[in-house]
Structure formats: structure tokens, C-alpha cells
């Protein structure tokens, strides 16, 4: 089940209403939050994505089932501009090399659950940034932990938290899923 911050029912509405309502709903969200939009208008598949790109929001993905089209969008957080501060960094390629030889590593994916559902590294643990503390308790402080998000910023903050909580072997993966060429597992198509 994908956790979202708000659900919008635009079923039965014709163009332009699905986009008009999506725009209004996004205004009510805080940066970084995820909106789920249910629509039945086929035109919404292209239009909500195009609107999100034009408005600068992250379009996470779309899922179609029994005539209902469900869109997932994440409000821009302006995170791309933030400077990274956590000193221990590895590249996507370095992580791929590690995964090829070492099975005893834990990837912690701190993106929202909708982002995780539309594609994550096999074996990665889903720990949305806001729920990080709960997940920390289940992890061994001695394990090698690779923290990943979309562009390396949320994971930077998460890596700092983990280190502060006593984890000794934490690395931030940059740029993260936005540049990931390795294998991918999906909960949604």
C-alpha cells in the first residue's frame, strides 16, 4: 500500500478539471509531500505529467487499473539547490560495485513510499525520511548502510541523522535513484 499525504478524487471529471483540481490540491501540500490523484479521463495521463513538469513538480508515476488512472506527484521541495554536508559519499557506480561482491550491506531508501513503489534497488529498505526514526530501531549499528534518495539531498540529511544516532558505517549515495542504471524492482507498473 502506497502512503500518500493527500488523495484527490477526480473520477468522472472531464478535461480540464483533473488538472485544475490537481493544481489546487498541490497548493495545499507542503514541499516534499505526495499527492495521489484518481481520474478516469484518459487525457489526464499525458496532461497531469506535462503540467507537473511545467510547474516544476516531480511526477512519480501512474498506475491504471479497471479504468481508474492513479497519478502520484510530489511537490517540489527546492532540495536540488541545497548543499550536501555528510562527508562519506559514494557514487552510484561504487554502490553497484559493492553490491556485486558484498551481500552484507543494507540500502536504506529514504524517498516517499510512492517513489519507492515505482522503482527501487532490489533489497532496499523503504524508510521515508519522515519515518526514519522508527526504521532506525530495526537496524544493526555495525552494518554497512548506504542511504539513497532521488538526487542525494534527502539521503544527505538522513545520513547525518543515522550517524548522530550512533551508526558507524554510513554512506550517502549520489546522485541516487535519478541516475541509477542498475537493476530495479517495482511494486507498481
Amino acid at each position: 500500500m502506497i502512503q500518500t499525504d493527500m488523495k484527490l478524487d477526480a473520477k468522472g471529471l472531464a478535461c480540464p478539471m483533473p488538472v485544475v483540481k490537481t493544481k489546487k490540491a498541490m497548493q495545499q501540500l507542503s514541499p516534499g509531500q505526495v499527492l495521489e490523484v484518481q481520474a478516469t479521463d484518459k487525457g489526464s495521463i499525458a496532461d497531469i505529467k506535462a503540467w507537473a513538469q511545467s510547474a516544476g513538480h516531480q511526477y512519480i508515476g501512474v498506475h491504471e487499473e479497471e479504468g481508474v488512472i492513479t497519478h502520484y506527484l510530489r511537490k517540489t521541495a527546492g532540495e536540488e539547490a541545497e548543499a550536501k554536508r555528510f562527508p562519506h559519499v559514494v557514487s552510484n557506480e561504487e554502490l553497484q560495485a559493492v553490491l556485486a561482491v558484498d551481500e552484507d550491506v543494507q540500502i536504506v531508501d529514504v524517498r516517499e513510499s510512492a517513489e519507492y513503489a515505482f522503482g527501487h534497488i532490489p533489497g532496499a529498505l523503504s524508510a521515508p525520511f519522515g519515518e526514519l526514526e522508527a526504521v532506525l530501531r530495526s537496524l544493526d549499528q555495525e552494518t554497512s548502510i548506504y542511504v539513497i534518495c532521488r538526487t542525494g539531498n534527502r539521503s544527505d540529511m538522513a545520513a547525518q541523522k543515522l550517524a548522530a544516532a550512533g551508526f558507524r558505517n554510513v554512506k550517502n549515495v549520489v546522485p541516487g535513484m535519478s541516475g541509477w542504471n542498475g537493476s530495479i524492482q517495482k511494486l507498481m507498473n
Partner: peptide, 8 residues
């Protein structure tokens, strides 16, 4: 061509 969603 200007998409309607850029004119709302």
C-alpha cells in the same frame, strides 16, 4: 501552442 494548464 500553449497548454491550457499553463493558462489557468
Amino acid at each position: 501552442n500553449i497548454p491550457y494548464f499553463d493558462l489557468l
